[in-house]
Amino acid sequence: PDDLEKRARELLKRGKNPDEIREYLRNAGYDQSQAEEALKRAL
């Protein structure tokens, strides 16, 4: 898994919901489609 996916998994483990994770990834400078893909793979 790429770093983005790892980060998404990490956040899920900490109890973040998908919307929070999307926002976090966007704020971290990733584009929307990258964030969506990583989140899908992590779920």
Rank of each mutant, 00 (worst) to 15 (best):
22 R>L: 15
13 K>I: 09
22 R>V: 15
25 L>N: 00
43 L>V: 07
18 P>T: 06
6 K>R: 13
40 K>H: 12
27 N>P: 00
11 L>S: 02
30 Y>I: 09
31 D>Q: 07
41 R>I: 07
19 D>V: 06
3 D>P: 08
36 E>R: 03
22 R>F: 12
16 K>M: 15
40 K>G: 07
14 R>L: 15
3 D>E: 13
32 Q>I: 13
42 A>V: 14
26 R>V: 15
27 N>A: 14
41 R>S: 08
9 R>V: 09
23 E>A: 10
34 Q>S: 09
16 K>P: 00
8 A>F: 05
13 K>S: 10
27 N>E: 13
32 Q>P: 14
43 L>Y: 06
2 D>C: 15
26 R>A: 11
40 K>A: 14
16 K>G: 04
29 G>F: 02
15 G>P: 00
23 E>H: 07
7 R>F: 15
42 A>H: 02
24 Y>Q: 08
28 A>D: 06
37 E>L: 09
40 K>R: 14
2 D>Q: 11
14 R>T: 12
29 G>S: 02
40 K>P: 00
7 R>P: 03
32 Q>T: 12
12 L>Y: 06
41 R>Y: 06
27 N>C: 05
37 E>S: 07
23 E>Y: 05
1 P>Y: 13
33 S>Q: 14
28 A>M: 14
13 K>E: 12
38 A>S: 04
21 I>A: 03
28 A>V: 07
10 E>V: 05
10 E>H: 05
9 R>A: 10
15 G>F: 03
5 E>G: 06
26 R>W: 07
2 D>Y: 11
3 D>R: 06
14 R>E: 15
22 R>Q: 05
32 Q>S: 13
3 D>N: 09
4 L>V: 11
8 A>H: 01
32 Q>R: 11
9 R>Q: 08
4 L>T: 05
16 K>N: 08
20 E>Y: 11
20 E>T: 04
16 K>F: 15
19 D>S: 09
8 A>I: 15
23 E>L: 08
10 E>S: 05
9 R>Y: 09
18 P>I: 10
6 K>Q: 14
25 L>D: 00
15 G>D: 02
22 R>K: 09
26 R>K: 13
4 L>G: 07
18 P>E: 09
18 P>A: 12
3 D>Y: 13
11 L>N: 01
31 D>M: 06
28 A>N: 09
36 E>V: 04
15 G>A: 02
6 K>H: 12
10 E>G: 04
41 R>V: 07
38 A>W: 09
29 G>H: 02
20 E>S: 04
29 G>C: 02
40 K>D: 10
43 L>W: 05
16 K>Q: 09
18 P>D: 04
32 Q>G: 10
31 D>R: 04
24 Y>F: 14
19 D>N: 10
11 L>G: 02
21 I>G: 00
27 N>D: 11
32 Q>H: 13
15 G>I: 02
35 A>C: 08
36 E>M: 04
42 A>T: 04
37 E>M: 09
2 D>I: 11
16 K>I: 10
4 L>A: 15
17 N>W: 05
42 A>G: 03
43 L>I: 09
32 Q>K: 10
20 E>P: 00
33 S>G: 13
22 R>A: 08
5 E>R: 05
6 K>G: 10
9 R>W: 09
21 I>R: 00
35 A>I: 15
41 R>A: 12
40 K>F: 12
30 Y>Q: 02
29 G>T: 02
21 I>P: 00
13 K>R: 13
13 K>Y: 07
42 A>P: 02
30 Y>H: 05
12 L>C: 03
39 L>P: 00
6 K>W: 13
25 L>K: 00
5 E>W: 15
29 G>K: 02
38 A>H: 01
2 D>S: 11
6 K>F: 12
24 Y>S: 07
31 D>W: 03
20 E>Q: 12
9 R>S: 08
13 K>F: 06
28 A>R: 08
17 N>S: 15
19 D>M: 08
42 A>N: 02
26 R>E: 07
14 R>D: 14
5 E>M: 14
31 D>V: 04
42 A>M: 11
32 Q>A: 14
24 Y>K: 03
35 A>H: 01
42 A>Q: 02
38 A>Q: 01
30 Y>K: 02
39 L>V: 10
2 D>F: 12
21 I>Y: 01
24 Y>C: 05
9 R>N: 05
26 R>Q: 10
36 E>D: 11
41 R>M: 09
1 P>K: 11
37 E>K: 07
9 R>G: 06
37 E>A: 12
31 D>H: 07
13 K>D: 11
2 D>L: 11
11 L>M: 14
43 L>C: 06
9 R>K: 10
8 A>E: 00
39 L>C: 04
18 P>N: 05
34 Q>K: 09
38 A>I: 12
38 A>G: 04
39 L>R: 00
21 I>K: 00
40 K>Q: 14
32 Q>D: 14
42 A>W: 06
17 N>A: 11
25 L>M: 09
11 L>R: 00
9 R>L: 13
27 N>R: 13
5 E>N: 08
9 R>H: 08
30 Y>C: 07
12 L>H: 04
21 I>T: 02
10 E>R: 05
21 I>N: 00
34 Q>C: 05
41 R>Q: 09
36 E>A: 05
38 A>Y: 04
39 L>M: 05
29 G>I: 01
38 A>F: 09
36 E>N: 06
25 L>P: 00
15 G>N: 03
35 A>S: 08
18 P>V: 10
36 E>C: 03
34 Q>G: 05
41 R>K: 13
43 L>F: 07
4 L>C: 05
41 R>N: 09
31 D>K: 06
21 I>L: 03
18 P>Y: 09
1 P>I: 15
34 Q>D: 12
35 A>V: 15
3 D>C: 07
14 R>G: 13
34 Q>E: 14
26 R>I: 15
2 D>G: 10
1 P>M: 15
12 L>D: 01
21 I>C: 00
24 Y>N: 05
5 E>Y: 15
27 N>L: 14
25 L>A: 02
21 I>E: 00
38 A>P: 00
3 D>I: 09
42 A>F: 08
3 D>H: 10
39 L>D: 00
39 L>F: 02
43 L>S: 05
20 E>C: 06
9 R>I: 11
20 E>D: 06
35 A>K: 01
41 R>G: 07
7 R>I: 15
24 Y>T: 09
41 R>P: 01
6 K>S: 12
15 G>L: 03
33 S>W: 14
9 R>T: 08
22 R>I: 15
43 L>G: 05
22 R>G: 03
34 Q>L: 13
33 S>N: 13
10 E>D: 11
15 G>V: 01
13 K>A: 14
10 E>T: 05
23 E>K: 06
16 K>E: 05
33 S>R: 13
24 Y>I: 15
29 G>Q: 02
37 E>R: 06
18 P>S: 06
11 L>Q: 04
35 A>M: 08
34 Q>V: 12
1 P>E: 12
4 L>Y: 05
30 Y>R: 01
19 D>W: 09
5 E>C: 10
26 R>N: 06
37 E>P: 02
38 A>C: 04
5 E>K: 06
21 I>M: 01
9 R>F: 08
11 L>K: 01
22 R>W: 07
19 D>G: 07
38 A>M: 06
40 K>I: 12
7 R>W: 15
42 A>I: 15
28 A>Y: 07
12 L>I: 08
1 P>L: 15
30 Y>F: 12
37 E>H: 07
5 E>A: 13
24 Y>D: 08
13 K>L: 12
5 E>T: 13
8 A>W: 03
19 D>I: 07
26 R>F: 10
14 R>V: 12
28 A>S: 08
1 P>G: 12
28 A>H: 11
36 E>F: 03
7 R>L: 15
21 I>W: 01
17 N>H: 14
15 G>H: 03
43 L>M: 13
1 P>D: 13
17 N>K: 13
7 R>M: 15
28 A>F: 08
12 L>K: 03
29 G>V: 01
19 D>F: 06
5 E>F: 15
29 G>P: 01
26 R>H: 09
13 K>V: 07
29 G>Y: 02
23 E>S: 06
40 K>M: 13
4 L>Q: 03
8 A>L: 15
33 S>T: 14
4 L>S: 06
15 G>M: 03
2 D>R: 10
17 N>P: 07
25 L>R: 00
29 G>R: 02
16 K>C: 07
21 I>Q: 00
25 L>W: 05
36 E>Q: 05
32 Q>W: 13
17 N>Y: 06
36 E>L: 05
3 D>S: 10
43 L>Q: 09
20 E>I: 03
4 L>N: 02
38 A>D: 01
1 P>N: 12
27 N>H: 10
8 A>T: 10
6 K>A: 14
14 R>A: 15
31 D>T: 15
37 E>T: 07
12 L>G: 01
35 A>L: 13
8 A>P: 01
24 Y>P: 00
18 P>H: 09
42 A>D: 01
26 R>M: 15
30 Y>G: 03
15 G>Q: 02
23 E>W: 07
33 S>F: 14
3 D>G: 08
4 L>P: 11
2 D>A: 12
39 L>S: 01
14 R>P: 01
38 A>R: 01
12 L>M: 05
